[in-house]
């Protein structure tokens, strides 16, 4: 497996929103058939990294190779081809609310293949079967529960049999039982279809259950990139803080805290002082 070319290769990726640098010198690679988890606290840049992998954002500098192709030098027709070989399950599901579940899942087939409606129907129902949503193709997305929306999003993401699957926060907003069943689904998809799966999450339990390797992002930098066991046993304090759910900036000054709470009043009290120093 290690000889095969990587499914994803990111080299020295730097990105900005306006003037603010969000990702700093990120490098990583995802092997074929592996479940690769990008983990990190809220605001660490996970979604930004994912959007770059999907080609939705342009990096300031650095190279991103998806299935061997440098996505920033591809023509739009080549990019279109590449995109039919990858699937994405968005955090909110992003199902088209004006279409039934079945039409949602069938859309990539209708747009990118010449299959007849009969075959499209069969493939659609097959994929719904895979995500345990058989018989729900006539419902509208608004009629589904949170877990079912995620499942339907997975079905749509895998309908073209992609080599590469991306999932943003698959367990966010779900109760633990449903979240765990989504984890099982991800494992099942990898085993049944042999695809590489990139999962973005801040859920530790889920990470340790499904990951082959973990990339820990912290403030836009790769803090660690290793196997599950190596990450678990890492001596790095920041990683241990993250694993043990400790916040880094513990409140030490109760006075400062109180002053912050009284923010409005403090400003007023300060104004004369500022005036004087100004003069």
């Amino acid at each position: 497996m290690s000889n095969a070319p990587p499914s994803i290769e990111v080299i020295n990726l730097d990105t900005h929103y306006g003037d603010r640098q969000v990702l700093k010198n990120v490098s990583l690679s995802v092997n074929p058939g592996e479940i690769f988890v990008i983990m990190g606290g809220s605001g660490s840049g996970k979604t930004t990294l994912l959007n770059h992998l999907l080609g939705l954002l342009r990096p300031t500098s650095g190279t991103i190779r998806i299935l061997g192709k440098d996505i920033n030098t591809l023509s739009s027709l080549e990019m279109q081809d590449l995109r039919t070989r990858m699937g994405v399950a968005f955090q909110s599901g992003a199902l088209f609310s004006s279409m039934s579940v079945g039409d949602n899942i069938a859309l990539p087939l209708r747009e990118h293949t010449d299959l007849d409606e009969m075959t499209i129907g069969i493939v659609t129902r097959l994929k719904l079967e895979v995500v345990s949503l058989a018989g729900f193709e006539h419902l509208m997305p608004a009629e589904l529960s949170g877990g079912m929306i995620k499942r339907a999003a997975f079905a749509r993401a895998i309908v073209m049999d992609p080599k590469l699957l991306f999932c943003d926060e698959p367990s966010a907003g779900l109760d633990p039982v449903v979240a765990s069943s989504i984890d099982d689904l991800i494992l099942r998809l990898r085993d049944a279809m042999g695809m590489s799966i990139v999962v973005v999450t801040h859920d530790l339990d889920s990470t340790f259950k499904i990951a082959d390797r973990i990339c820990v992002l912290d403030k836009g930098e790769v803090l660690a990139l290793d196997t599950v066991d190596a990450i678990r046993n890492s001596p790095n304090e920041r990683i241990q803080n993250l694993l043990n759910r400790r916040t880094e900036e513990a409140e030490v000054d109760p006075d400062a805290y109180l002053r912050r709470l009284l923010g409005e009043k403090e400003k007023h009290a300060n104004q004369p002082t500022q005036g004087r120093t100004g003069l």
């Binding site: 080609g55 968005f90 609310s97 859309l107 747009e111």
Partner: peptide, 16 residues
């Protein structure tokens, strides 16, 4: 609505 639901991103990444 499609924009805030990420449906437009979903179209893009499907190659549509």
């Amino acid at each position: 609505t499609m924009r805030i639901n990420q449906e437009i991103d979903a179209l893009s990444v499907m190659g549509i």
